[in-house]
């Protein structure tokens, strides 16, 4: 885990590259282009950038219209506003007609920090996952973000990508190949499996290293695409390691943990512990403090791993 980069920065860079490769790409933002990093694209391709003002619902509808005439719109704002404020527009105008629009939301999760609970989206993955036709991607680092944004551009249909505000460690090698719908085994292991997404994947890798020192062989499976879900890699982990710990910077209601629970219940019931935000709203504080406060650190995962081993 060498370099640190915010996934939103990786997005801004990739989007600007894509703009040069495909003239159909247009970008919309709602007065947050500095924060979401769509400003990088706006600078390079001002005529293909539309600042829609603080009007997220209208932004989603406008993107649907642009898609209907053959453009490939990427729209960005904070996760809470993309999914929260404009949910039914996303459902009706994007998902229902399978519009070729990419909703790339930044500032997902509690690491938004000081802005507090009103701005910390802990339910967006659950909400987007419930919408038919929607693809849901939560990258772990900058490398995966770049690859996922390219995959989203190449894919025909609505995609939701959830990115973060702060720098996160790079877990993937530069030559990592991202495929929509495929999970990745990052660390091999036989005693238990951490199934993780977003910034929790780096924490799981650290937790696995710690457990190794205690003689425990922990597998780490990263789920970059929450939907469609790689059921196979999950069932295989259940069969081979017997217990599962999921981890996400999101509510344990409806997100990765719930998605994994569904697969386990249907295909290979084994003990499961869901690490995530425990059905509560976020709060103001520094990002690092909040990860501790909500129990989202490598130490919390080590603890959860030990607890699950005892249940084997």
């Amino acid at each position: 885990m060498s370099s640190m980069i915010a996934t939103r920065d990786a997005y801004g860079e990739t989007l600007a590259e894509l703009g040069g490769e495909d003239s159909r790409i247009v970008v919309l933002d709602a007065d947050l282009s500095g924060s979401t990093k769509t400003g990088v694209f706006a600078k390079k391709f001002p005529e293909r950038f539309f600042n829609m003002g603080i009007a997220e619902a209208n932004m989603v509808g406008t993107a649907a219209g642009l898609a209907a005439v053959g453009k490939v719109p990427f729209l960005s704002t904070f996760a809470i506003f993309a999914v929260g404020r404009a949910w039914e527009q996303v459902r009706q105008s994007l998902a229902y007609p399978k519009a070729n629009v990419k909703v790339v939301a930044t500032h997902g999760g509690v690491t938004v920090g000081e802005d507090g609970g009103s701005h910390q989206s802990v339910e967006d993955v659950a909400i987007m996952r419930a919408v038919p036709n929607m693809t849901v991607i939560v990258p772990a680092d900058g490398v995966e973000t770049k690859a996922a944004i390219r995959a989203a551009a190449a894919y025909k249909g609505p995609v939701y990508v959830r990115l973060g505000r702060n720098k996160v460690p790079t877990v993937f090698p530069a030559d990592y190949r991202f495929e929509i719908g495929k999970g990745t085994e990052l660390v091999a292991g036989t005693d238990l499996t951490f199934i993780t997404t977003g910034l929790m994947t780096a924490q799981a890798v650290t937790a696995a290293e710690q457990l190794k020192k205690e003689g425990v062989s922990a597998r780490v499976v990263h789920i970059g695409t929450i939907k469609p879900l790689d059921r196979e890699i999950i069932a295989k982990a259940a069969r081979e390691t017997g217990v599962i710990v999921t981890a996400e910077e999101h509510s344990i209601v409806g997100g990765l943990g719930s998605a994994v629970a569904e697969v386990l219940a249907e295909e290979c019931p084994v003990p499961l512990k869901r690490v995530g935000v425990n059905d509560r709203f976020g709060t103001s504080g520094k990002a690092e403090e909040l990860l501790k406060y909500f129990g989202l650190t490598a130490e919390d995962l080590v603890e959860a791993g030990r607890e699950m081993l005892a249940r084997k």
Binding site: I54, F81, D115, G116, S118, H119, S284, Y293
Partner: peptide, 28 residues
Amino acid sequence: LRRLGSHLQGHPDSKVTPGVEVCTGSLG
């Protein structure tokens, strides 16, 4: 203000701040 545990959240929160009537922060 804006510290972990503070009753003065980043955006007005009627649950914790005396004198604040409703929660705002999402514009509009």
